[in-house]
Design a protein around this nucleic acid. Structure first.
Length: 158
DNA sequence: GCCAACGTTGGC
DNA sequence: GCCAACGTTGGC
């Protein structure tokens, strides 16, 4: 069992969109970075925990919890000449971009980027590293526990 | 819209 | 394999 942080632009797919989808599940389409692809292709397992992160928006931060919901499989948009994710060098025989399905487990009160930065236990999170751009990053069990505690504390404070 | 940081591309 | 040019990401 591993843990991950996956960025999504809420204008594309938000945690609400994922929760509204059939089975609360969305295909994690459009990743075109080799490191992020390799995580999905080589390291993820169905059931892995996911922090659903909203990026490139007014309030960036962790917006929900999710889980990996499939084995890796080819991202169909790479074959679609009309898609912005089209890749002319990819073929059905030799797909270049792999993805997984992600099932939203629940929406959380937003844990804003500034709040993540405020916790010393989270200082080593890859997402917080200067210049980080990776849309999928591994999360350590300790970081996962810390963030889940933040979420729980927030809920019981309401 | 700015811009730092990083990834990718392609000529050599 | 080097590296300059270019494109993208993403917080601010």
């Amino acid at each position: 069992m591993q843990y991950w942080l996956m960025k999504s632009e809420p204008g594309e797919v938000s945690i609400d969109d994922a929760l509204a989808a059939p089975h609360h599940t969305v295909p994690w389409t459009g990743v075109r970075n080799y490191q992020a692809r390799n995580f999905m292709r080589d390291a993820m397992r169905a059931g892995d925990g996911v922090l659903f992160y909203h990026s490139s928006c007014a309030e960036p931060g962790i917006a929900g919890l999710a889980e990996v919901a499939s084995a890796p499989y080819p991202d169909d948009t790479q074959f679609d000449a009309k898609s912005k994710y089209f890749d002319a060098k990819a073929t059905r025989e030799n797909p270049r971009w792999m993805m997984v399905d992600v099932r939203a487990v629940g929406k959380t009160d937003l844990i804003a980027l500034a709040e993540l930065r405020a916790h010393p236990e989270l200082a080593d999170m890859l997402i917080l590293k200067r210049g980080n751009r990776l849309s999928i990053t591994p999360v350590t069990p300790a970081e996962w526990r810390c963030i889940n505690q933040l979420i729980t504390a927030r809920q019981s404070a309401q």
